[in-house]
Structure formats: C-alpha cells, structure tokens
Amino acid sequence: MSQTIAPNDVSLAVDLAGLKLDNPMMTASGTCGYAYEYQDFVDLHTFGAFVTKSISVEVRKGNEAYRIVETRGGMMNAIGLANVGLDAFVKDKLPQLVSMRENGPRIVVNIAGHSITDYVTAAGTISQNISVDAIELNVSCPNVGDGLVFGTDPTMLKKVVAEVRAAMRDDCKLIVKLSPNVGDITKTAGAAVDGGTDILSMINTYTALAIDVNKRRPRIANGTGGLSGPAVRPLAVYLTSRVYREVAKAAGVPIIGMGGIQYWQDAAEFLIAGATGLAVGTALFVDPATPVNVMTGLKEYLAKQGVTDINDIIGTLKMPGDQGF
C-alpha cells in the first residue's frame, strides 16, 4: 500500500518563468473586466493571477449588438475589444486593480493594438507600474481585422514581441497569447519564443460562424465571432500539447493553458498536456466560483494520483510512440 496523501497537503504553487503564483488559477482576459466588477461574486484573493480585459491605446466602443450567441457547449463573442483606453485605464482602473495585489493575485494586464507602436506604447506605459507583474499580448483577437496579422504571421509576431519586450520594465514578465486560427501553431509559438517572450498563453478563441436560419444572416452583428467554452477544450488541449512538446519544453518557456476549463478534469488535462498556468473564461459566467471548485477537485485528484506537488504532473502525457507509453 502506498502512503495516502491528504488533499490539503498537495502544493498547487507554480512558477511561471519567475512569476510565482500561489496556485495556477487565472482569469481569462475579457471575462472579468477590470476585476472590481467581479469581486461581489468571488473572493479574488483565491486566484493565482488576475488578467484584465484587453486594453488598447485608444478608447474602443466595440461592436454593435448582438455581441454574443450561445452555441452547443460553447459561446461565440464579438465584443470588438470594447475598453476604456490606455489613459483612463492607467488613471482610473489600474490603481484599483493593483490594490488587491497584496496577499492576493498577481496582476496581469492584457493589451491589444493596431500597430507595433501601439503595443510598445501600451506595454511600456503599463509596465512602469511596479505592481503589474506581467503583460499579456493579445495578438490573436479575431474580432478586429487589424490584430490578426500579428497573431498569424511569424515574422511580424517575432518583431512585435522583441520590441515590446525591450520597452518593458525588466522584471515585468511578457506573455504572448497565441491564436488557434493558424495552420501550424508551432510556427507562431516559435516566433514568440524567438522574440523573447517569457511565457506563452493559449488559446484565444476560434473564429466561428452561427447562422440565424430564419433570416439567413449571422447571429451576431460582427458576422463571425470567437468560439470559447467546453466545446473548444479538446482542440485547445491538443494545441497545448503540441506547443509544449515541440517548442516550449525545450525552450523552457511555461504555458498558460485555457479553452473550455470548467471542471477539475479539464484543468488536469491541460496540466498533463504541458500547461503550468490555467485560465478560466467562459465558465466564470456559468459559475463565478469555478476556479475555486477546480482547485478543490485538483487537490483531491493529485492526492489520489500520489502527487504532492502539482509541478510533478505537468507535461507527463505519454503519446503513442513515446518511450514508456
């Protein structure tokens, strides 16, 4: 009989390239606003890190209604990066956000842009605040035509990553968020690593289309939208596994996995596939306490697996053909 482990003895602490988190649970950008909107529903201190809605240099009003539609096992959104803009963010939202950092989650600010200059300006300005632990680059939001090119063209991506990294406070980490809407994700992942990213996060939403069969028109105003939620999970786990095995592991770049995490089983899949951090988006709308429930489940699961340190399960997937399969 192997020794039994109590769930409470399992350590969930992870280290993302020096960004130390009490636990791997993070919010997915765009699903919790700037935090204060969300704090009535869950104790934000339970998160390892908080990730903001994408911030752009200019104010963006976003797309017309309808912005979302539910599809089987998932939802599509085309919010259009609605946000208050860099100046208002730094002045009004950021102080409130960083005030919860003490004994609380690490702070990650997600940024989006039209041009390299936009990204450099936003990342440079925001990283000056020493309470910002990391900047996440949204180079993959499929809703505005302009952002997509950085996320799909490896040459452009490497360039923007390198320039943003150089413009940032040194000890502020850079996360590049990968788009799944590419032919070969290892190419863009490799470009981000070559550009000098500290961490990769994946995935953003899948470009998708839902049709109103009566009107024969798209069900959201933008036409297409980004699919998220449980429906995308197996796709996201697959991409996480590929990037881990073919790019990230060798480069020593940790991955934040996301896409349809709702139950602890989903989170466990991402960990085994190679993710070190775990972000929850759509499932927060279903139950704001999802990350807390996932953590409870993960601890029990790891204890049953005989694992006392979450890091020991990361990337332990054996695929057909692997040694020891």
Partner: peptide, 26 residues
C-alpha cells in the same frame, strides 16, 4: 432586454445605446 452572458457587468455583451454627453462613443 439584451442578450447576456454574465449579467455581472464583466463581459460587455449586453450593450444599449444611451444618450450621454460624458465621454460619448458617438
């Protein structure tokens, strides 16, 4: 009434155009 995902003010899906002179969007 507007289609809602969160109902908590976080997802920005349930927008309506309201007259406002303070930082107008249009």
């Amino acid at each position: 009434e507007q289609t809602m995902a969160c109902g908590m003010g976080t997802c920005q899906s349930c927008i309506v155009k309201i007259e406002d002179n303070n930082n107008p969007h249009g």
